[in-house]
């Protein structure tokens, strides 16, 4: 696990400079429209729009394509099966028993998923997680949830690194990841030790927090400032989303 999103989120582009609150609301509206699309035509337009948005972030294309492929891995079984299982008129001239409706549905699902994922990546890879979470708090997500997420995010990589070292320790003692009960037990032990260390760490974190006068709130100095460029970007985004919705009707 690498903090690559965090790395790219600190780049510079029109997408990066967009105020996180305005960006979140606009892209949420866009995603809401994308989710409800029923025609392949509109879904295709939506996917192209999303890809253009991602391109506006000047992010490395190869990396984005790889990420998109991984994220869609769970979708592929659906796409293969659906043309055969959805009842409807058989596709003329096809050697396989594929229905037109099934093919249509598979294509729609694929384009819709592609569009949603791309918009999601445009958001994640252009906004540092901390800024985004504070923006969400600004938009009404409960403070408690945001604070626990911030702390989780902060400890994620520390814990991940501990886990990696534990697996190295297993590897140098000849552990091989095989499908056997012994291997599973060893990995279960790793999980158990991770939890134990987490418990010990929690106690030290609690003490360190007490020493700094923690009273249950994780405050920040971050201030959001939005100006005309943010409003214009959001207005364009909302208009495009409305356009998609019209095309779909």
């Amino acid at each position: 696990m690498r903090a690559e999103a965090e790395l790219y989120a600190r780049g510079d582009s029109p997408l990066h400079r967009w105020d996180a609150r305005w960006k979140t609301v606009t892209l949420a509206v866009l995603i809401a429209v994308l989710v409800s699309l029923e025609s392949v035509r509109a879904a295709l337009a939506g996917a192209l729009m999303a890809l253009a948005l991602l391109a506006g972030g000047r992010l490395p294309a190869g990396l984005m394509l790889r990420r998109l492929l991984t994220a869609q891995a769970l979708l592929f079984p659906c796409l293969v099966v659906l043309p055969f299982t959805v009842p409807g008129a058989p596709l003329p001239g096809s050697p396989l028993p594929v229905s037109r409706e099934g093919l249509h549905l598979a294509l729609l699902l694929y384009l819709r998923a592609l569009a949603i994922l791309t918009v999601g990546f445009a958001m994640v890879y252009s906004t540092p997680m901390v800024v985004w979470l504070r923006a969400l708090q600004n938009l009404g997500i409960p403070r408690r949830l945001v604070e626990i997420t911030l702390m989780t995010y902060r400890y994620l990589f520390t814990l991940g690194w501990e886990l990696t070292r534990m697996r190295w320790a297993l590897a140098v003692r000849g552990f091989r990841n095989r499908p056997s009960r012994a291997a599973w037990r060893a990995l279960a032990q790793v999980v158990g030790v991770t939890l134990l260390r987490s418990l010990e760490r929690t106690e030290r974190v609690r003490q360190a927090l007490a020493c700094r006068g923690f009273q249950g709130r994780l405050r920040t100095l971050h201030e959001f400032r939005a100006g005309p460029p943010d409003w214009i970007k959001s207005a364009v985004g909302i208009l495009l989303a409305a356009g998609l919705w019209m095309v779909d009707r």
């Binding site: 997680m129 901390v130 911030l150 702390m151 995010y153 902060r154 400890y155 520390t158 760490r201 030290r204 974190v205 003490q207 360190a208 927090l209 700094r212 006068g213 923690f214 009273q215 709130r217 994780l218 405050r219 920040t220 100095l221 971050h222």
Partner: peptide, 23 residues
């Protein structure tokens, strides 16, 4: 504390240094 990872609770440097004074 001995291990800075136990002490640095915030996800950015500025937020963490500001944590005590804000409290």
């Amino acid at each position: 504390f001995q291990n800075p990872d136990d002490q640095i609770i915030n996800a950015t440097v500025a937020d963490d240094v500001a944590f005590g004074p804000l409290n």
